[in-house]
Structure formats: structure tokens, C-alpha cells
């Protein structure tokens, strides 16, 4: 066991992966609780597809991927939020429409330029090898930004998640905190895409929250448990993927699935 850890940490790219991954997992898990409870879990999925489309366009234009994807995804997050608030389009169908369109546009743009190149493939399925030093610095900063804002506004986010009408009626600016939630989610997804791939990043948002909700009954306990479950699953997943040479992103998602099933079992077992 110890020698495995030692061996893994001797690869600089794995150290980078752990640093970025653990931070991104924490962000995703924290935000995930509110997103799942507000029935916004599809937004994470939609945003990752939009992010992919934006990346494809950025690659075709030979621009820095993050610089294009970040504003596009943030704007989309605000747009989706606005749409589901107005009730013009039912949330889930709106997101499904948007995400498949973005994916399709991304693929079209690529076929016009130079076909599926390695970079785009990496963004789709994630690649731990693709994490560069610069990525680490940007990701760490952005993740810390998300975590700090989440902690500072934790009480407000709880109130807005639990009962938006009451929060609004008693003078909490619910619209503002919904936007904050959308902004933080967008940032987390763009940062996490490189690592997990746009097809899998949304699972990091949804899984830990659902898993924790099996067992815990207070909001705080669910939030803390989500973060812990998310980090543990990530570390175990990456280790397994290192041991058995399986794709990193998919292994992490499977570990999350296993954790979910485990929590379901714990819930029905009478000893707990």
C-alpha cells in the first residue's frame, strides 16, 4: 500500500492530478448539494456540453481554450437560470436541447477544421496527462475562489436552496445567490473538464450529493459528507486507474457509483 502511494507520487503528472482533482471534486461536491436539491442537476450536464462546444470552436480558431470556454459557459449558466426561473421552458428539456446542440455544433466545427484531434478528444473524455503546470496554477486559484465564496455565503445558499420564496420575502436577494450558484458551477465545470472530460464532469456534481443524501439528514452533514465522499472516490478511482491502466475519468465515476450503492446498502441495513 505504502509503496503504491510512494510510486504514484513519484510521477509529477499524478501529483498534479491529485492536487487539481481533489480541489475540483470538493467544489463540485459542495455545489452539487444545492444543485441537486434545487432540481438543477441537469444544468451541470448542459454546461459541460456547452463547454465542449466552446472548446471545439476555440481550438478551430487557435485560441486558448479556457479563455473562450469560461465566459461562454458562465453566460450559458446565467441564461439557463433565467429560463428556468421564468418558466418559459421547462428546465430539463431546455437543458437537453441546449447541450445536444452545443455538442453537435462543436463536432461540426471540428469536422470543418482538422477533424478530431487529440486535444479535443482529451476534453471530451478527460486526460490526466493533459494537466500542465499552468493548468494546475489556474485550477488551484479558481477552485479556491469557489470554495471560499461557498463557505462565506453558505448560510445564504442554504436559505435560497431550502425555501426561495421565504428568503425573498424576508429580504434575502435570492436572485443574486442563484446567480452566484450558477457562476460557481460554471467555473467548476470548466476547470474540471480538462481532468474528467466534459462527458463525465457532471457526475462529479451529482453523485456525491445523492450518495450523502442516502444517509445524512441535515444540510451541513450532507455538504460535509459530499466533499469527503467526493475526495475519497477521486483518490481511490485514480489509484485504481493507475493500478489497472483504466481510463481515469471513467474509473472515478465508477467509484462514485460504487459509493452510492454502498450508502444505499448502509441505509437499508438495520444496524445503522
Amino acid at each position: 500500500m505504502l509503496s503504491l502511494i510512494k510510486e504514484m507520487l513519484s510521477y509529477p503528472f499524478l501529483v498534479r492530478t491529485f492536487v487539481v482533482g481533489i480541489l475540483v471534486c470538493t467544489c463540485a461536491a459542495l455545489l452539487g448539494v444545492s444543485l441537486v436539491l434545487k432540481r438543477y442537476s441537469m444544468i451541470g450536464d448542459g454546461l459541460s456540453h456547452v463547454g465542449f462546444g466552446a472548446l471545439a470552436v476555440a481550438t478551430a480558431l487557435n485560441r486558448a481554450p479556457m479563455a473562450i470556454a469560461m465566459p461562454v459557459v458562465i453566460l450559458t449558466a446565467f441564461f439557463l437560470l433565467r429560463m428556468s426561473e421564468n418558466g418559459k421552458l421547462k428546465g430539463d428539456s431546455a437543458v437537453a436541447m441546449l447541450s445536444s446542440s452545443a455538442l453537435a455544433i462543436g463536432v461540426m466545427v471540428m469536422s470543418f477544421s482538422n477533424g478530431m484531434n487529440i486535444d479535443v478528444y482529451n476534453y471530451m473524455f478527460g486526460s490526466i496527462l493533459a494537466v500542465t503546470r499552468n493548468d494546475v496554477i489556474i485550477s488551484v486559484l479558481l477552485s479556491l475562489f469557489v470554495i471560499v465564496l461557498y463557505v462565506v455565503f453558505y448560510t445564504k445558499l442554504f436559505a435560497v436552496t431550502f425555501d426561495e420564496t421565504f428568503a425573498k420575502a424576508t429580504g434575502t436577494k435570492a436572485g443574486l445567490y442563484n446567480m452566484l450558484l450558477a457562476l460557481l458551477t460554471a467555473v467548476t465545470i470548466v476547470v474540471g473538464m480538462r481532468l474528467m472530460g466534459s462527458l463525465l464532469i457532471s457526475s462529479l456534481v451529482i453523485f456525491p450529493a445523492l450518495t450523502s443524501m442516502r444517509l445524512f439528514k441535515s444540510f451541513k452533514a450532507v455538504v460535509i459528507s459530499s466533499a469527503v465522499v467526493s475526495i475519497v472516490c477521486f483518490v481511490v478511482g485514480i489509484s485504481l486507474s493507475f493500478l489497472f491502466s483504466t481510463p481515469a475519468g471513467a474509473t472515478v465515476v465508477c467509484t462514485n457509483l460504487a459509493a452510492y450503492l454502498l450508502f444505499c446498502l448502509l441505509r437499508i441495513s438495520p444496524t445503522v
Binding site: L37, T155, T170, S218, F219, K220
Partner: peptide, 20 residues
């Protein structure tokens, strides 16, 4: 709010939010 995990204490305390 049928499936919302929140303790009674958390819910009550959120009433103080507008004073914060």
C-alpha cells in the same frame, strides 16, 4: 421539500438570515 435533508435547527436558524 419532501426529500430535503435539513435539520429543524438549520431551518429555524435561517429565519435570522435577514438580520445578518
Amino acid at each position: 421539500r419532501k426529500d430535503f435533508p435539513a435539520s429543524v435547527g438549520e431551518v429555524v436558524l435561517s429565519g435570522r438570515l435577514n438580520k445578518r
